[in-house]
């Protein structure tokens, strides 16, 4: 009797679990599929029920978005800024995170505290100070060589991306480094590795899952970034999210919904693809906050 009761509560539990999981999954799949669907609709279809299926496949939206709205060009800019951001970020954040996690030195507390405080700085209010600073640098450079180098420069944008991501990235990476056993470094020392070699040959490879996680997080952040790109590159070097704004409905103008959704898909697709590629590593790399520290 008891066994049967157990069986049925077990079944009930499973039923609840599956329905909860499925509800959330459906609530994600349907809207995302809807965005893809909307991107091949003709403009007039948007005034009807939004959940209607498209009447046909209208690829013109993508053509207009890519060529007339220059999303193709902006795509390249986004790729450049994001790539530079990620490369610079890894180059500077990995050693810093490693040192902060595994070494004791004077001023460590101070550096930790500063980076911790940096987590709470929001780009939305430091963007203008950054702009004014770069502007000052530009004016100085202009006096010297009659060239403006800093603003409207997609490479500088990438570097600023990297800089603003340092607190979070160092935090994440050093949490991971802290979980690694001391034995690795001791073994490396016995093998005669110097500090540098220990870091590059032993410790960083061990941190790979965490690095992949950091890459994905920051890729998403840089790829979708809007306010820095808009402010620091006012005349050239627009990125995708900035270009997307010009697809939004103009005030007092006709809406081009189809093209807008095509633009949204152009922005979204690379993130989806990258995510699918690295999703397996994601869970491994998330071990942080230190289970054992």
């Amino acid at each position: 009797m008891k066994k049967i009761k157990n069986m049925s509560t077990e079944k009930l539990f499973k039923f609840f679990v599956y329905s909860a999981l499925l509800t959330l999954a459906v609530s994600i799949i349907i809207p995302v599929a809807w965005v893809f669907m909307a991107s091949i609709k003709e403009n007039s279809e948007f005034y009807a029920n939004p959940w209607n299926l498209p009447m046909g496949v209208y690829f013109e939206n993508f053509k207009i978005a890519f060529i007339e709205a220059k999303m193709g060009e902006y795509f390249m800019n986004s790729v450049i800024a994001t790539t530079i951001g990620l490369v610079v970020l890894l180059l500077v954040a990995l050693p810093a995170a490693y040192v902060l996690a595994r070494f004791n030195f004077k001023g460590k507390k101070f550096v930790d505290g500063m980076l911790m405080a940096g987590l709470f700085v929001n780009v939305n209010y430091i963007v203008v100070p950054i702009f004014l600073m770069l502007l000052g640098a530009d004016n100085m450079i202009y006096d010297l060589i009659e060239q403006e180098l800093v603003l409207n420069n997609i490479f500088v944008l990438g570097i600023v991306y990297a800089a603003t991501a340092i607190p979070f990235t160092v935090y994440l990476l050093s949490s991971f480094f802290r979980t690694l056993p001391k034995a690795y470094e001791e073994a490396a020392e016995i093998d005669g590795c110097g500090y540098f070699k220990t870091m590059t040959k032993v410790m960083i490879p061990l941190a790979m899952p965490s690095i992949v996680t950091v890459l994905l997080f920051n890729f998403l952040a840089f790829w979708n970034e809007y306010i820095l790109a808009l402010t620091l590159n006012p005349s050239s070097g627009k990125t995708l999210p900035v270009g997307l704004m010009s697809l939004m409905q103009a005030s007092r103008g006709k809406a081009e919904y189809g093209v807008l959704y095509a633009g949204l898909v152009i922005v979204m697709l690379p993130t989806l693809i990258l995510y699918i590629l690295v999703q397996k590593k994601l869970t491994q790399g998330m071990t942080m906050g230190g289970l054992k520290d």
């Binding site: 203008v128 808009l230 704004m245 939004m248 103008g253």
Partner: peptide
């Protein structure tokens, strides 16, 4: 379309 944002800086 977002000329105010673009021109401000």
């Amino acid at each position: 379309k977002n000329i105010a944002e673009v021109l401000r800086p």
